[in-house]
Computed example of a mutant assay.
Amino acid sequence: MVKRMTKLLLVLALALVATACGGGTETQDANADGSGQKEVVKLKLGHIATENDAWHKGALKFAELVEQKTNGEVIVEVFPSSTLGNDRDLIEGMQLGSVDFALVAGVLSNFYEPYSILELPYLFRDKEHLEKVLYGPIGEELKAELLENAQLRGLQFWMRGPRELTANKKVETLEDLKGLKIRVPEIPASLAAWEAMGATPTPMAFGEVYSALQTGVIDAQENPRALIASSKFQEVQKYLMKTDHVFGYVLLTMSDITYNKLTPEQQKAIEEAAKEATDYENQLVFELEDQLLEELTNAGMEFVELDVAPFVEAVQPVHQEFAAKYGQELYDKIVNTK
């Protein structure tokens, strides 16, 4: 009898310890009358954009859909404005399992190099070309390879508005780029391309860009209109050049460690929610493009349209270099997608 009681007490003690160390999960009543219990899994999603950005609104929609589709079993908390760190921090966090989801883009090329090709300026002809690549076999292949090589699970590609150049001097020709100190993300393709166009690129975390522009550490930066407006770069930049040099994406990415902790039903719900949130975010992005331009020009920025043909020609050697280094076959498939 004494042995039996000792075993029972030991089991109870272990149960209490397990409850106390439950980490990111908690339990709550399965229904209003408390007739059952379910485990609630709380997950974190980080990104670098502000709360006004389409990324954030898309992330909130994703969180809402996940909660609905799992009947409240999985809750996604969204952290904007680099609260969980910059792009590199978020990616490393997902690899460690300390971050569950992130919206990340070009910095992925530092973790799986073929993604560098997607960052080449003037690779994509227009938005439709980008969509055909990302939402076809090439996009599926890219996600599968990211999982295999970097242990990052790409859920869905989200569209972004084209990247455009802002500066405190008017840029209309390649000559105007000479000596221009331009912030670029930590992406080799961006560095090489802007050097080829004659600028002086400076890699810098996104959260530092506003103050660097304000203090004159850099002269220019390049981003989609949505990030320009939500980050208030119009307060510290005079000109907005319609370079449209990158038709780009952001990838809703998930830690594979987190994914494998979930039930098959929860995994399926997350995948479905990601797809539905993609449709929502993509529509929002392109509905806002004209409105954002009006907002930026009303704030005092001068909008400059220019002939991009010389810019396209200047980056062709970089295209060839990166294709040879990171995947000629991938590059050719993208260029030949009609």
Rank of each mutant, 00 (worst) to 15 (best):
P317T: 07
E113T: 08
I270P: 02
A54N: 11
K325E: 12
V104W: 03
K57V: 07
E39Q: 14
I91L: 05
A189H: 11
E294W: 09
E329H: 12
F233D: 03
R225N: 10
V17N: 04
Y239R: 02
V184Q: 11
E140F: 02
D290C: 11
N298V: 03
E141C: 06
Q95N: 09
E295W: 05
V308Y: 10
F322H: 02
L146H: 09
W194P: 08
K232Q: 12
N31V: 14
D307H: 01
V285H: 01
Y115P: 04
A273N: 05
L146N: 05
N168I: 08
P80N: 02
E92D: 11
I257C: 00
L118N: 03
T297E: 13
L108V: 11
G179P: 06
Y326C: 00
L180F: 07
R160N: 13
G179A: 03
L84R: 08
H129M: 04
R225Q: 06
L174H: 06
D89L: 12
Y135V: 00
P264H: 10
L9K: 15
A167W: 12
Q266M: 08
P162Q: 04
E119A: 13
E235G: 02
K261N: 06
R163A: 13
I257M: 02
L213R: 06
I91V: 15
A15V: 15
H129I: 12
H319R: 03
L130E: 08
E276H: 06
P188N: 07
S190I: 07
H129S: 08
A150V: 06
P310N: 09
D87N: 11
S211P: 00
A205T: 14
T25N: 07
T6Q: 07
F124N: 01
A167V: 11
V78D: 02
L147S: 07
H319K: 03
L96K: 15
I182R: 01
K42N: 08
A269N: 07
M159W: 09
S35H: 13
A196Q: 13
G154Q: 01
K242N: 13
H319G: 09
H56C: 02
E276L: 12
L146Q: 10
P317E: 04
S109D: 13
Q28L: 10
T27G: 00
S230Y: 06
L65Q: 02
I182E: 00
Y259T: 02
E289W: 06
E141A: 05
P121D: 03
M1D: 10
Y326T: 05
E39A: 08
Y249L: 02
T25S: 09
Q37V: 14
Q316D: 01
L293E: 13
S35Y: 15
C21P: 00
A193Q: 05
F247H: 14
T297P: 03
E276N: 08
A273W: 15
M1L: 08
L284N: 01
G136Q: 04
N71K: 07
T200E: 07
G72P: 08
E321I: 04
N86C: 10
S35W: 12
L180P: 00
Y210C: 00
L14F: 15
A229Y: 15
